[in-house]
Design a protein around this nucleic acid. Structure first.
Lengths: 152, 152
DNA sequence: TCTGATTTGTAGCCGTGGCTACAATTAAGC
DNA sequence: GCTTAATTGTAGCCACGGCTACAAATCAGA
């Protein structure tokens, strides 16, 4: 529902009322989930353009493990949100906002995988878990991860 | 959609086809998301019963930051899935399966928070992030976390 | 070129998890 | 005990993200 088109990976701190801060934690997790799909698509489209030269809906669908119809609907949402563009029967492209999001998501993904590996999680499990985890890692945690990995 | 009523926190390994394993990662993240709500409710109900002596829909709703109608609908889903019981206008209780789930979820939550803190994330940020992260941490990662924290 | 396979898009269905509004029941206070 | 407040439950709406089925457009090969 945000009217702003910034798509920060984080959200405002918001000084918390007495004991209802548990509710705020859940709300935050829910809103993170709401943008997770956009983030996944943005990163994937960026990857496909980088490696294949183009991002076709069918390839996106196959990579995500969903039907092409689902992918196309989600791409429509990306367009509504100003993250992607496409003309009929042509491939999908990212707007500057979409590119920025993709870059941040990719960096975050790597950081999460690296941290998991650093604490002893096997590489393949780290890749799997990171796919779900990354959307819930705040900027603050990311900074801590970077520092921990010696990339302060 | 699972017919089994076990609710493992993990899922089967499944030997991966050629390069479609990216799709499998996304599918795993999606299925984790599907059980996240159940997990949150189970843990919260267990907490409320422990600290307040009972779990009332209104309290559940307030703690989760949703309307009571939403909470009641979700509780209905817990009942359908065999995790909770309740009689009309009486409180909510967990079945043995629900209790087990709650216990595992609570342990996992603590482990995730502790790991985040151990790598340098501030306590409050760790609590917030853990709420979203925990649902995507595999048993394998949990074991790594425990070992890293010196609780092998 | 034109015919058939592939890709893309559309329509319409479903379950989930939000919500508000209203009804019913229980609990509390006079 | 009755009235009122609080709680609980129901109904019905919405957007999302899945899906299948079908239609339209593009692309490739004969």
């Amino acid at each position: 529902m945000p009217k702003s088109k910034t798509y920060k990976l984080d959200a405002e701190p918001a000084d918390l009322p007495p004991e209802a801060d548990q509710a705020h934690r859940f709300e935050k997790a829910r809103s993170a989930q709401a943008t997770a799909l956009l983030e996944d698509y943005a990163e994937l489209i960026s990857d496909l353009i980088g490696t294949e030269g183009e991002a076709r809906p069918t390839d996106i669908a196959r990579r995500l493990g969903v039907s092409h119809a689902t992918a196309i609907k989600s791409i429509a949402r990306l367009k509504r949100e100003g993250l992607a563009t496409s003309k009929l029967y042509r491939g999908v492209f990212l707007t500057p906002a979409g590119e920025m999001l993709a870059r941040r998501v990719r960096a975050r993904h790597r950081l999460v995988v690296d941290l998991l590996v650093a604490v002893g999680v096997p590489q393949d499990a780290a890749e799997v878990d990171a796919e779900g985890i990354e959307h819930h890692v705040s900027e603050e945690s990311l900074r801590a991860f970077a520092k921990f990995l010696g990339r302060a």
